[in-house]
């Protein structure tokens, strides 16, 4: 418990997590509100609860940066050495940090998920937006899970790379570009894409679930969530393993 407390103090006594948190909520919820004001014009498509979640990716990207920074800034400023001096068991220290990063990420995810849905509904009251199916609930209430797992994955990458610029670039380029471009590879592209971690996260949330080409997938929504979590845990484990072996 004392380790969690130490990491909690560390996270909340600098400004950048607050800014990241604020941005992670304000960007997607604000833009969703903007979309809602324009929604429902003539000729606009039918939508359900998952349509309110299209901009959550913005919040997820910011959370990625926040989680990576929480460890790379320790390496940058040398405080990682003070951390390992106070807690020589590096696995415990990093697991405590993981928990303290994942919980705020989940909270942000909850605010983004329900916030986007609520603000959309408020501006554009439409009975179709009600949470009346398992898929609707997954789309909205599933955000905290996806945000938390994203934070764990990002933290793992941060521990491995130890360098802010490198970690942020790898995470953003990978999640925003690589996974999409892979689909362009002829023949094998789709099969590879179906096993990409953020693709898996989107399948759990149900982003554009009715798109053609997304009908015959190897896993169901919960299977994809488990797969996403497994990848995150594997990356984190690799990070912790290497941090234990390296000189601090």
């Amino acid at each position: 418990m004392s380790l969690l407390e130490a990491e909690r103090i560390k996270l909340f006594t600098t400004r950048s997590p607050w800014w990241c948190g604020l941005l992670a909520i304000a960007l997607p919820v604000g833009l969703t509100a903007l979309i809602a004001t324009q929604a429902g014009g003539p000729g606009s498509a039918e939508f359900d609860a998952s349509a309110t979640q299209l901009l959550t990716g913005l919040g997820r990207s910011v959370v990625m940066v926040m989680a990576a920074l929480s460890i790379t800034s320790e390496y940058r400023f040398g405080t990682i050495r003070a951390t390992f001096q106070a807690v020589p068991n590096r696995t415990s220290a990093l697991l405590a940090k993981t928990a303290v990063t994942a919980v705020p990420a989940a909270l942000i995810g909850a605010v983004v998920g329900f916030g986007s849905w609520a603000v959309f509904r408020l501006i554009h009251p439409d009975p179709a937006l009600a949470l009346d199916s398992a898929a609707d609930w997954r789309a909205v209430a599933g955000q905290p899970l996806v945000f938390a797992i994203t934070a764990v994955l990002s933290l793992g990458v941060g521990i491995l790379i130890r360098q802010t610029a490198g970690a942020v670039a790898v995470l953003l380029v990978y999640s925003l570009l690589v996974e999409g471009l892979v689909g362009l590879i002829p023949k094998i592209g789709d099969d590879i894409q179906h096993w990409m971690p953020f693709f898996a996260a989107d399948r759990f949330i149900g982003v554009q679930a009715d798109a053609p080409g997304l009908q015959e997938l190897p896993l169901g929504p919960w299977g994809y969530l488990a797969y996403f979590a497994a990848i995150a845990v594997a990356v984190l484990a690799a990070g912790i393993l290497s941090a234990g072996r390296r000189d601090a």
Partner: peptide
């Protein structure tokens, strides 16, 4: 080896 945007007291608090 301290975070420049963390106060002296906060640095000691987490330790």
């Amino acid at each position: 080896w301290v975070h420049p945007n963390r106060s002296a007291r906060a640095h000691l608090r987490w330790l």
